[in-house]
């Protein structure tokens, strides 16, 4: 039918066609479907990365209910995120959102408030305020034992000892108040005791207000 040379050409063409079919078959089996959608990668990976679950509550999440508390934060601690002391708060937030959705108007909200109040306040404070080489001089730092020398705390061993003088939400202001109160020796313990209880109150109060 064909001359010898033409036949060879047809054989070559057939072989090339086979290689081509083989290449595209293997390619379609091994290359993921969305590969190359946006570039040299799997387009679906973008969606997976976007849809990953968010774990930590953001400042915005807390502010949704605790907007007033946000404004009460003193200048020195306004950048400190709630979760630094109060923990991740995810359970609290989810519980509150569920309670809100099912609550009728006028009902007091009961949110899950477990594990929100830190027990080791002293460690949390020292986390940032422990004197350390490398920290800027303008950043307030203490060596705990030296700091306590001039103080007369009611319970020096207590992990909440810092809160006898400082309110965690507004430490600088509390400190200046205390300095004035120092003149009034008798008033000091009573006044100082108030902020100890105060930080426990805001969460229920602000949560219930909604």
């Amino acid at each position: 039918m064909f001359s010898r040379d033409t036949l060879h050409l047809w054989i070559l063409a057939g072989a090339l066609a086979l290689v081509g079919v083989g290449f595209f078959t293997v390619r379609s089996l091994t290359v993921p479907p969305s590969f190359g959608q946006f570039g040299h990668y799997r387009g679906a990976a973008l969606q997976i990365a976007t849809d990953k679950e968010r774990k930590l509550t953001t400042r915005g999440d807390c502010g949704e209910c605790h907007a007033t508390l946000k404004h009460e934060m003193g200048k020195s601690h306004e950048r400190v995120h709630c979760i630094e002391c109060h923990g991740e708060g995810k359970a609290h937030m989810t519980a509150c959102k569920t309670a809100k959705a099912s609550a009728k108007a006028g009902d007091a909200l009961t949110c899950d408030k477990s594990n929100l109040m830190p027990t080791n306040i002293k460690d949390i404070c020292l986390h940032c305020h422990q004197e350390m080489v490398g920290r800027a001089k303008k950043h307030p730092q203490i060596v705990f034992t030296e700091h306590m020398k001039d103080m007369d705390p009611k319970d020096p061993k207590s992990p909440l000892v810092c809160m006898e003088c400082h309110s965690p939400h507004n430490p600088a202001e509390e400190l200046s108040d205390d300095k004035e109160e120092d003149k009034d020796e008798e008033a000091k313990p009573a006044e100082a005791a108030t902020p100890t209880a105060a930080p426990a109150a805001p969460t229920p109060a602000a949560g219930g207000a909604q």
Partner: peptide
């Protein structure tokens, strides 16, 4: 939202 590290940096 912001990245977690940016959000918590005090």
């Amino acid at each position: 939202e912001k990245p977690a590290c940016v959000d918590v940096c005090p």
